[in-house]
Design a protein around this nucleic acid. Sequence first.
RNA 1: GGCGGCAUCGCCAAGUGGUAAGGCACGGGUUUGCAAAACCCGCAUCCCCGGUUCGAAUCCGGGUGCCGCCUCCA
Length: 478
Amino acid sequence: MTLKLWNTMANALVELEPIHAGEVRMYNCGPTVYSDPHIGNFRSFLMADLLRRTCDQRGYKTTQIMNITDVGHLTTDDVADATGEDKLEKKAREEGLDPFEIARNYEQIFHENADQLHVRKAHEYPRATDHIPEMIEMIEQLIENGLAYSVEGVGVYFRVNAFDQYGCLSGNTVENLDSGSRVAVDDRKESAHDFALWKIDDKHLMQWESPWGKGFPGWHIECSAMSYKFLGGTFDIHTGGEDNIFPHHECEIAQSVGSGTGDFAKVWVHARHLLVDGEKMSKSKGNFYTINDLIEKGYRGYEIRYSLIASHYRQPMNFTIGGLDGDAKALQRIRSLREKLEKWSADPSEVIEGLEVEIETARNGFNDAIDDDLNISGALGVLHETVRSLGRQEPKGDSARLALGFLSHCDEILGVIFVEETSEEDGLSEEQQSWVLGREQARNDKDWALADELRDKLQESGILIEDGPEGMTWSRIR
RNA sequence: GGCGGCAUCGCCAAGUGGUAAGGCACGGGUUUGCAAAACCCGCAUCCCCGGUUCGAAUCCGGGUGCCGCCUCCA
């Protein structure tokens, strides 16, 4: 039983063989904190979380680092167009706030959303702006190694033609890039493909001193500098969204390997982008969802989580609200069984023949699916089959505890069954409470007409009433 | 122009040579004061055309269609 992952670098499924036995060190490209994180962002972060949880469960000592990009990326080609404006800066101008304040604000929202989706905390969340000296140091080393050069008053560039491995991750070669290039050539650079390590621009709001003049770091250097600081020059896994493959990760490799710190990441795992309603998510199409949008619509964090992890991270998932509703329903069946099992576990034990074997088989099936490049869909298939079977068998006492153990094992990875909503559930209004009490009385009196009327009233007010063998329960309708 | 990926039931989605998991939806039941939930039953031969093989959704060749990346983007 070994975890296999699709390594973008090898373009093949590879077994995870940690550099240090029993220990996995992982770097995740994290959020850029200048807007509310959307479901696409979190699909990628959740993939990293699944990886983290899987490593934890397999007994590895896992070190997970996720960066916070609080230096904005340029919105337009920074080389061809010197008026290129930083995203944080743009936001700052629009919102009339200090860019650092904005970054901190969105960083906070990112953490809140991550908590709501029950994402396990990374061990560190280093901020780019806290590591300017480390970046400068690495740039100096690159210059010393002949892989970077400074242009007076403009900045420092990486000399792509001097780095043979450039293109090893994306498959892009410099020649191929030339053919379809959209890059405007800047003659201050030696080659059109050279990318910035340090930029000098007076108009930029975030500025730091450097040997090459006051300026700010290039887009890619933060990950090279921070991964080195926290994980060393060679580590096990690097993750990100598929769009990061080129240029971001390609450039990181050039910087890190080029600076001589080590071999950099062994396994590269990239999450495919998701579509919404079959189309690329965009604000203008009205199919753009932030996590907060969905929370406001009344979806629970664990429902959103389930829906975003239910399809394979390397498949172009198509997110729809209808799909989320269906997923929420499927998840609810699992959670209902959990509640029943907890109740049944207090009953006297009764032996169910074959249950132990069934659970063991299911557990192996679940593990095998996860091992197979985090095949959550396959794992969920096993889980759902078992849930139906357990619902039929209604195990009590020890048998119930055995079943709960299985659910709990699955949930170490899934994080959707035993977790509770982090936000407070609002109680019923006084009027609603009176209807509930009135309905209970009516049911006792067998006044079905009144009972049904009150149930309808509650439903209209957004409360769903369900009668069970042990009384009624209510839940909020979204 | 270059690089990469995908095509399985109405929708979502497993499956990587041995006779199509699972979920949602849908239809029929059990149960329930009614309903809901739960459980039971039913519900596809895998884009097209060739080939390899005793045997292919799975391998090979050729089509067709779709998508991502190629310096904003998870």
